[in-house]
Nucleic acid binder design. Sequence first.
DNA 1: CGGGATCCCATATGATACTG
DNA 2: CAGTATCATATGGGATCCCG
Lengths: 119, 119
Amino acid sequence: MALSCPTGQHDKHDVYAAQCPCRGVLDLLANKWTALAIGALEEGPLRFGELQRQLEGVSPKVLTQTLRRLEEAGFVDRTIYPAVPLHVEYNLTELGHGVAEPLGALRSWVERNLDRINA
Amino acid sequence: MALSCPTGQHDKHDVYAAQCPCRGVLDLLANKWTALAIGALEEGPLRFGELQRQLEGVSPKVLTQTLRRLEEAGFVDRTIYPAVPLHVEYNLTELGHGVAEPLGALRSWVERNLDRINA
DNA sequence: CGGGATCCCATATGATACTG
DNA sequence: CAGTATCATATGGGATCCCG
């Protein structure tokens, strides 16, 4: 597996230096809700409230933050249906489904090995 | 892919509730250095100083924290060679190599799609 | 309903200096 | 060399209240 950064800025012994753009994306995933949000959206679009209920415990502020970051990265798509009451849908983009896959693989591994961890 | 928690505590609409043990492991990975440290150790054991240099930017305190957590989870193995000067080696356990795989897949995906992100 | 605005706290992260 | 001790700061996360 390639450990070196595709930008070629670092040699193989760097793994990746902190300044590598890869880091930004990795950091994006490195927080409490991002991975879960992506997982939740994998099976279809969800509204703000639905997401909040599924993530159980996330505050509206933090959920908004998370979703905005995902939007910025291009993983999530936000659609507003002007109506009363307001209807907003969040949706994984193609790119979003892309990350969802290796992310899901990671979750699967964790689930399969839960018993071996902390033993 | 299985989204539901293996403990069966939650239904499929939960993705996973915050209390699911899966969360703990996910949270373990959800920080700045853990994934990188695992990546660095994938090709062989490293000493504290070597790791610190490869991770470029991590302070000794934080690196210690990271490694201790990985040890506790059973992903990393710490071997002390009593000598002067002191020699300590960090090593991925079999379990550690296990996570390294899906983790590497995630990194690979990120590398392959760097240009599409933030576009 | 879907957030934005605030306030506050816990923790992660960092820089630096020091020690067995 | 491999950390530990300390101090300082940034950020994330959470609770609440409010508004279009």
